[in-house]
Amino acid sequence: MSKVTQITAKAVPVRGDDIDTDRIIPARYLKEITFSKMGDYPFYDERFDEEGGQKDHPFNKPEHQGAGVLLANSNFGCGSSREHAPQSLVRWGIKAVVAESYAEIFAGNCIMLGTPAVVASSDDVAALQDLAANKPEVEFTVDLEAMEVRAGDLTVKVSMPETRRKALLEGTWDSTALLLANRDKVRDTAKKLPYMGWAVV
């Protein structure tokens, strides 16, 4: 599992609070039994009309193609627990998200994919979004060691839960192996739980 220390890429601003997971990926695309095609779908209904024609959306703009840093506002990813939402963003090319705040399940799903989701202040996010919109060629660096985002003349402080930061920096964000290592302790804990032994028939 790879260590994630810093990400440098162009950025794409997607403005607005409370952008829910149904907007990030409409439920009809959840009928696929693998994640392989999810990269085709992020913000689908906001990017395409019913005939498939392109609408005005940052993900459609030629200057944001190849962007790897998503700049969003507050409560990003609220709603459903569908991992299809971060999967669609990551498979489109997003490698890090900077936002004012996240829905808890969405942020947890990002970390499971090794994708940093860091928090910046409202003013800083606005400044970063303006920069990415006005100068889309500028490279943004999300630095998890310094906990800052650098882009052009801007340097802004960012935060994320220390546990998640550590998981990314140490390359232990894929938690299955960590959890499996404690098999014996799991058995001990389970043994002490009263309901594990109750008869149900």
């Binding site: 546990t163 998640r164 140490e170 232990t172 960590l178 404690n182 302790k185 001990d188 804990t189």
Partner: peptide, 13 residues
């Protein structure tokens, strides 16, 4: 009652 261990990341298992 359900906390198994503290993981190296500091998270709770």
């Amino acid at each position: 009652a359900h906390a198994v261990a503290t993981l190296p990341t500091g998270q709770t298992q």
